[in-house]
Design a protein around this nucleic acid. Structure first.
Lengths: 338, 338
DNA sequence: AGTTGGCACTTAGAAGGCAAGAGTGCTGAC
DNA sequence: GTCAGCACTCTTGCCTTCTAAGTGCCAACT
């Protein structure tokens, strides 16, 4: 069934009002503040119709209306006005990034922090890293008798430090040449290729098999460990919102948010979409009473990472989307200028 | 005033009971469960005396007694029995560490996780890193035209990746030789020395001054940034405890816990003490209604890090201390065996 | 002098009743 | 299709009452 323009307008008002006040919206408040041209009785019948269609519900017969999940979905896809950041907010984003030195982890942290501050929700972020990262350099250097430190640098400037055990009878010189061989083999390869490279190159490394295998192990671990680079900020922000006034709701929320695996899963799921909004049960990892708005940033063809905000259904989507867009713009400017 | 043995016993019972039940303790429950040899009236008069001395308080005239901060202090210093881990708990700690590869960050994360799981409180940890870390190797390698990636490896196996900007007119060969020079100067030096080294060595580096300065900057940043290595686990555990049933208390707690600077401050404050217990306002960063138990681990002379548990005053100190001791023991075994 | 049973007293918390207020649904008139 | 008016429903706050838990104190006992 198609919604009339007036129904759409009323639904938008209800969602807007509910988002900003967290209170059921009554027919009276709609006519008083937004639609003086009709009476509350008229609005009431429209509200009843919208409820019939599944967009609204009441907590009890004599309460105002509350948007349903369906209403939020419609709201973000059709009804919502486009938000705009104030100059002050833009400056805040810029200064957040100005401080940092270019360390990728720091960029992600700063982004998460500023997003959380501007939106007043918990923000989560993960730097992109996957099989397409290209290996630039590998260093192995001896640390203790039978241990060496392995560093892998990729084009996204992410570095992993792993300790690997090395045969005790290996001399420094042998290690050095293993190092060179490993670099020769892997440098320039994508991580995915490197993982598969083991068999082909095997013969060349007769005496350095162990080292070679450890490198592959480390790369494999890295590719598989999506949750490693997850960063969060404003974990306590959720408590600023009245739907989380009860401790057990908070608990539920926090237990999801603190599980990095679940977060990583959600953030890496469909990261080809620029801005994605998931409401309620739209993601298996997302609790029914939460929404997740994510943005994936790229510079040219290179994905930089996915950033997002997790919060109540009654989220200020308009604000969140504009903050994420603002951050994306500034982030991309920054990367391109470099 | 000196406490009689019976008063001590009663105080211990009250604290133990309150820790396990979170309910004010009545004279009746004391006589029924712990002291059948005296009547409740007798215990009542003892309780009144303990209250007079400031160890106990009541929420209202007809409620049982609740320990004061003073009582907790006395409890941990004199009254508390020594806890002992079960075999199962020990195994759990061991397996938590067995998985990991030796990456220092991972060790810290695993430790934080297992501590939180075993104690059911939020745990915090920071890998030790300070001016005494010895630089093992520095690598600078070009990343984009005017940017290079700087890696500093110290004896604690902590690695920092920082981007530094380099003069655009520098050739790869020049960078390579700057790299060698930097290594020659800094390798083997403590970070503190390295920071101060700038003036002495200046002349040698006429043409590589910029690089040299950047390295010093990076080292200085690293030494000053205590909060960088803070790790947390079980942030949601706090909600398992009834004193945090109200959302605003949770908020207060979380806002402290999520501030890495404050956490880092507390953890690095007096890290020469093996096990330290701070109750209520005993640390300026600690909320009045929280306690912090920390342990600093070392292998030989080298500090490995400080691990701790933050939770309500009504914390199971006995359990927490034994878990921290257990983790310490296993951690030290592990490091020594290597 | 310390211990104890007995008893009056205090308080929190649960349960019930009542009135006010907010909001709806419906109806009949325009 | 719109709307004023009215009956109806439900929540919320407030008051009262009642009960249970626990204490403090006192007089009697060892």
């Amino acid at each position: 069934m198609k919604l009339s323009d007036r129904k759409k307008k009323i639904l938008q008002i209800v969602v807007d009002e509910y988002i900003s006040n967290a209170q059921p919206v009554s027919s009276k408040s709609i006519t008083q503040n937004y639609m003086r041209d009709v009476s509350s009785a008229t609005v009431r019948s429209e509200l009843a119709a919208l409820e019939e269609m599944g967009y609204l519900s009441q907590l009890h017969t004599s309460s105002g209306r509350v948007p349903s999940i369906e209403a939020y979905k419609l709201y973000v896809s059709e009804l919502m006005d486009k938000g705009k950041l104030t100059g002050k907010e833009l400056t805040q984003i810029k200064t957040a990034f100005a401080r940092q030195s270019g360390n990728m982890e720091e960029v992600v942290k700063n982004a998460a922090k500023v997003i959380s501050e501007l939106t007043d929700y918990t923000s989560i972020a993960v730097a992109a890293h996957d099989e397409d990262d290209v290996i630039e350099k590998i260093s192995i250097f001896p640390f203790k008798e039978d241990t060496a430190l392995l560093l892998i640098v990729t084009d996204r400037a992410l570095i992993r430090d792993k300790f690997i055990s090395i045969p005790t009878d290996m001399t420094e010189e042998q290690l050095e040449s293993a190092n060179r061989l490993v670099n020769r083999t892997f440098a320039g390869k994508r991580l995915g290729e490197a993982m598969a490279a083991s068999l082909e190159a095997e013969e060349q490394f007769e005496s350095y098999r162990t080292i070679f295998d450890r490198v592959i192990d480390a790369i494999t671990d890295y590719v598989n460990d999506k949750s490693g680079g997850v960063v969060m900020a404003g974990e306590d922000k959720i408590l600023n919102h009245p739907e989380y006034a009860e401790a057990d709701k908070v608990k539920n929320f926090l237990s999801v948010v603190t599980s990095r695996d679940r977060i990583a899963d959600m953030l890496t799921e469909d990261n080809d979409i620029e801005i994605s909004i998931k409401i309620g049960g739209e993601d298996k990892n997302l609790p029914d009473d939460c929404s997740l708005v994510t943005a994936t940033y790229s510079a040219g063809n290179v994905k930089l990472g996915t950033y997002g905000v997790i919060g109540p259904l009654r989220m200020d989507y308009q604000k969140v989307v504009s903050v994420l867009e603002g951050v994306g713009k500034i982030l991309e400017d920054m990367v391109n200028k470099k």
